[in-house]
């Protein structure tokens, strides 16, 4: 069992000064799956992925990635193990070019093999369809393009686990369609954990859904199961 799942969390809790943001979160993500993590605002989704990639240390619990306990590992080491994270709030290097933004992530893996780096950077930019903007200063790009660049920075690292925190927020309709295509093209190769508010995107891309509510896992199941789950509808879908 354990070898099949790429990421496992056991009884993860996070307490912010008396406030329980996460309570006993047991979570299992099989290799290769596209998983959506949904839930109302303040449910603890960003906190949860924060504990996975090391931005937020959990108060208690255990996090295992690829068979290795990473609960107390420094952030950069987790990233080196193959976790990529795209920020909810766009966090590109705004004074560097789009190319350099992606190249920074690629170079961490491939060092000074310039040819290899170049082709991987262009491939990542191409996949989000902004290859023509490579030489632009990231801060000058439109908001939507910065979101796509953020995704390309993750893609460039060819991660084992790709965590996307509300990637479609602020994207135009056409760009959202492109994003869905991108996720479909990645499925099978990359394990994806997708935090998403846009239910349309979730229904069309995810294979499996976990619903978080008030810091606890409310329900888990396939897209169809979730669509008909009473609790989920009450807590979340019903409000949409």
């Amino acid at each position: 069992m354990a070898t099949l799942s790429l990421l496992t969390t056991r009884r993860v809790c996070k307490n912010f000064g008396g406030l329980d943001a996460l309570t006993d979160v047991d979570f299992e993500l099989p290799r290769g799956q596209v998983r959506a993590l949904i839930g109302p605002n303040g449910a603890g989704k960003s906190t949860f992925v924060g504990t996975i990639c090391g931005r937020i240390p959990p108060t208690s619990g255990e996090i295992v990635f690829d068979g290795q306990d990473i609960t107390h590992l420094a952030t950069h080491r987790r990233i080196c193990l193959g976790i990529a994270y795209t920020f909810q709030i766009t966090s590109v290097f705004s004074r560097l070019t789009a190319y350099e933004n992606v190249a920074l992530g690629v170079r961490r893996i491939h060092g000074s093999r310039w040819q290899k780096v170049h082709s991987l950077v262009m491939e990542a930019l191409d996949r989000v369809r902004i290859a023509d903007l490579a030489e632009q200063i990231a801060g000058d790009l439109s908001y939507g393009h910065q979101r796509l660049l953020e995704i390309a920075m993750g893609l460039g690292q060819s991660p084992e686990l790709f965590i996307l925190d509300e990637p479609t927020q602020g994207l135009a309709e056409g760009e959202i369609e492109g994003f869905k295509d991108l996720i479909r093209s990645l499925s099978g190769q990359t394990t994806i954990l997708l935090i998403e508010h846009n239910m349309n995107v979730v229904m069309e891309t995810a294979e499996f859904i976990t619903v978080l509510n008030a810091g606890r896992i409310l329900a888990e199941g396939t897209v169809d199961e979730m669509r008909h789950n009473q609790d989920v509808q009450a807590a979340y879908l019903g409000r949409d």
């Binding site: 966090s91 705004s94 893996i109």
Partner: peptide
């Protein structure tokens, strides 16, 4: 070098550089 480029990334946004896997 990639080392030098990473220094620039740290100058621009250290937290983000860490999230790209740099020590």
């Amino acid at each position: 070098t990639s080392f030098g480029r990473c220094l620039v990334a740290i100058r621009e946004n250290e937290a983000r550089a860490r999230m790209l896997g740099y020590d």
